[in-house]
Design a protein around this nucleic acid. Sequence first.
RNA 1: GGCGACAUAGCCAAGAGGCAAGGCAGAGGACUGCAAAUCCUUUAUCCCCGGUUCAAAUCCGGGUGUCGCCUCCA
Length: 474
Amino acid sequence: MIRLYNTLSRKKDPLQPVQEGKIGIYACGPTVYDYFHIGNARVFLVFDVLRRYLQYRGFEVTFVQNFTDVDDKMIRRAAEQGVSVSELADRFIQAYEEDTKALGIWPADHHPRATEHIPQIIALIEKLMEKGLAYELDGDIYYHIDSFASYGKLSYQNLDELSLGARVEIDERKRHPMDFAVWKKAKPGEPSWESPWGRGRPGWHIECSAMSMAYLGDTLDIHGGGQDLIFPHHENEIAQSEGATGKPFARHWLHLGYLNIDEEKMSKSLGNVLTVRKLVKEVDPMILRYFMLSSHYRSPINFSREHLDQAGRALERLTTLLYKLQERLEKVPEGDLRDEEQELLDFLGASRERFIEVMDDDFNTAEGIAVLFELARKTNVYLDRFAEQKRNVLQPILAFYQEVDKIFGFLTEGLETVSDLDQEIEELINTREKARREKNWELADAIRDQLREKNILLEDTPQGVRWKVYGGEK
RNA sequence: GGCGACAUAGCCAAGAGGCAAGGCAGAGGACUGCAAAUCCUUUAUCCCCGGUUCAAAUCCGGGUGUCGCCUCCA
């Protein structure tokens, strides 16, 4: 049974889908006014891997992640750049697609845009108005949080304390200081749509309520995003959605820990915002995937070059093993298993079970990775100690890593094929082999150094020379 | 002020009553022409003080420290 920590209940709850065998996931996506940063990337990546894992576990997953393509930030940025809001959105949606692709993040099943769901948003607001949960104020529509009895249940806040602690100026006209806009009256020059309350645009929270329910029904199985969205964004979504439907909005609320840079929160004012667009030019994206998945998704992680280097070296241990497996596989026969080989295969089976067990328990990718390393050590022992290996031992092990990598995506997706070395390099390697046979160490070492310059690492093994394309930092 | 998270080796990081996973770095060894890769060995008063228990990193109480949310921040 899969259990996931639920922000709403503050404990791990069993994943019991609304519809047997199906899972609907909605993740709050980016506001497309800039390139996304590595903190955003963590959220996209974790949901990407969660979705793949649930598919691996046999669920039919529908994954929805929105683009917020109209809001204050969009309008301001578009004005600064002298482009229309929709041009700005198009540009950064395209950038999103490019950058997530670089990270090996699959597109969601649906990437709804707020501006393309205005009718659904208006319909939802109308329902809130009918039920007396929202009120009009000079062309704006506000949600009245006093009318939703369980407001605050996600963030464990109560209304009185919230308004006391509020650091914003209170708009005296609102019925409750924390009432929030679901519809905003159009200002000159801003994008706007016709509505029963005049021209305007949706508030931020309402789009997620409207679009998630449009694609996934009134009750989602999993909804989430960064921790900072718990309040007010997700709290407000609950109020709107449950206020309108009377049904639970989401069964599981999943919130990710922060990604900090050098112990500090990323922020514009600190000037330490690091975009993925910039980072993937310097660092192998597979190392980023590994780094982010090597901590539990709810823990804060601290991003630094040093930690990334550590991650790179750790990952290399696994990719090196995969190279070896691929290479040996082609050269060894099948045969009857000796006891030690049967034990290794038994361990492989136990590893798969263990992998599922730890991943089922609140999606523990860090433990899942540890399983890969334990199997790696045993496999290395086999490769080292036994002069004769068998394909029917190596093949299932390689298959397991490939199977797991359909979920994690940091192993084989980063593997470059070893077969297509160009002629010139092939000759250099042959020359060096000849030199080594003649014990001309000076020439042999010179060639090895020369190839290292080209990111090709040579290793002399009892089975002959082996090379690999170096996949570390670029 | 309200709400919350976190503290485990030099570093990263799991574990949530029963001998403290895994990785990186370091040290020693094996293998190697030298390397690389790999293997073996080695590295922990689980922040502090109490309590519960046969047994606590884990549960309870109290501290200390770090961080976050309460601003349309992922």
